[in-house]
Design a protein around this nucleic acid. Structure first.
Lengths: 117, 117
DNA sequence: CGCTTATATAAGGCAAGGCTTAAATAAAGA
DNA sequence: TCTTTATTTAAGCCTTGCCTTATATAAGCG
């Protein structure tokens, strides 16, 4: 399944948003998604599988829990594809520069800790 | 249709790549796509419709020709969504920073007046 | 005017993907 | 070990989306 197909589903996008904050157990993700989308737990599990198999997420077992985390590689791919269109919104580039300048120090500090937030 | 759904289709992504270079007539796009994907002209036309209706492309009539061009708004949306994951690939950010720094001087020169900063 | 060229729309078939319920696997604790 | 909790897998249904062929619209030209 192609990266963009994976991101085509709103549930999967939401799951990634949740994981972006930090590692989460399948059950915790399920609880939120079930609440927000009204779908069953197995449905969520199937989405997690898609994310896993397409490389968007990695899993780690801890007892009976499965801890999911974002794997950035495919997102980077998506980002790379967008590259060729960046010229179309010059203003945002400026905004991004500002953002980068602001975040640079922060990132440098965070880098050695390697923790989430 | 959500932006990510639109980009989920390889044909539509390719069409956008073609349009990224510059305005193109429906027929020219069709010729390339038909050649590369082996689908019919109406099929291409339907993809163009999706791009049009979802705001990824705008059209302009010139005689019997329809000239399509990239409309960046939805792509910007996609880019914005990715924002929250950018922290996951520090190296690329650094590369982008370099790129931006390089481009900044250029833009500033072109702009002749003060920039932000 | 018709004929041709450029493009879009319509209708129908088929495949892919997402959801559900039911069942399997596996750790953990009484 | 039996039961409970956490999670995945399986099977089947049903919708959505893409493609095809056929047809419509409309400009350009002889």
């Amino acid at each position: 399944m192609h990266a963009f197909d994976v991101l085509g589903d709103p549930v999967r996008r939401r799951i990634l948003e949740l994981l972006a904050v930090g590692e989460q157990a399948s059950g915790d993700v399920s609880a939120v998604i079930q609440d927000e989308f009204g779908i069953s737990q197995p449905a969520v599990s199937q989405h997690l599988r898609v994310l896993r198999e397409s490389g968007f997420a990695s899993v780690r077992a801890e007892g009976t829990r499965r801890l999911y985390a974002v794997d950035a590689a495919p997102l980077r791919e998506v980002d790379a594809w967008l590259e060729r269109f960046r010229g179309f919104w010059g203003q945002r580039l400026d905004a991004l520069e500002t953002e980068l300048a602001r975040g640079k120090r922060e990132r440098r500090a965070r880098k050695e800790a390697s923790g989430d937030e």
